[in-house]
Design a binder for these strands. Structure first.
Lengths: 150, 150
DNA sequence: TACCAAAAGTTGAAAATTTAATCATTCCGG
DNA sequence: CCGGAATGATTAAATTTTCAACTTTTGGTA
């Protein structure tokens, strides 16, 4: 089975289920976040990563890695967040090439507001519809995927 | 726990694992498909859905639903696929508003070529790194998510 | 039949993302 | 210490996606 060219019937079925479910889920979460807080999931992710970082700041490359976005995309998105007043930039003292992105108080407040609704949606659409044991399996599965890639 | 404002530690951990793993995975698959076949995942999905439909054709709205894309996005993407010669359009005889998208032989051939590599990548990066029992759990979990939304 | 709301699809412009090239700085082998 | 390779980040242009508006046709209903 495992060496075959195509996928086994159950593999195919589960893979397609993941594709469909995850696409619908991220669509729904994106819509919700945009409608309620005028924020994209990509922007939200950036704010989350910054909020969890020491001193609420990260170098652009670290932020790109943790938010899983290309550097170029991050530059553009941070520029947008900067114009909203949620993020600001600072030169890195130890590396003249480097730039810190840092979460402003206003950005932190906006994140907190958005997170209340976003987390509720995550619970409603994901956590609560999955059996607890299976949620743990999902966690293990995707940690393995991430490990295979990272 | 389940009524709380935030997520429990394990819920949070598994949710984040899914976010990270799925983001890395779709990045990798997208890159692979683009590099080897000059095709995006969105285009690939459309070709797959058409290839599985009776007579290899679907109304635009059905195709949008099954490929999980907005109508507008689908119109643009199908236009691109049409210019590549992979898809063509035909008026619907029973509904003058309707349009069929249909997979050409050339499109079918391109899909088959792409699928060989894509499926291999899916196996390599997803199927093979997940325990069989947990893959089934992932399938059930995302079917539940899709059911909650659809 | 005559409306009028809803559905199918497209369009064009705006917004976001990707791609490739560029610039400045840092790192490292010789 | 020098010179080139590599890193960090940005920029401009091309591509893709979203958003809102619009046209045509259908379906229901009064």
């Amino acid at each position: 089975m495992s060496g075959s060219h195509w996928l086994a019937a159950t593999e195919q079925r589960d893979w397609r289920a993941y594709i469909e479910g995850s696409a619908r889920l991220s669509d729904a979460l994106e819509q919700d976040l945009k409608a309620r807080h005028g924020m994209s999931l990509a922007e939200y992710e950036i704010l989350v990563q910054l909020s969890e970082a020491p001193e609420r700041r990260l170098r652009m490359a670290e932020l790109a890695a943790s938010a899983i976005q290309s550097r170029s995309r991050l530059t553009h998105t941070v520029a947008r967040l900067e114009s909203k007043g949620f993020v600001s930039r600072a030169d890195c003292p130890t590396d003249k090439r480097g730039v810190y992105a840092l979460l402003t108080d206003e950005g932190f407040a906006a994140l907190r507001r958005a997170a209340v609704d976003h987390v509720a949606a995550v619970r409603d659409l994901f956590i609560d519809v999955i059996d607890a044991g299976e949620l743990a399996a999902v966690g293990r599965a995707f940690r393995a995927v991430a490990a295979r890639l990272g």
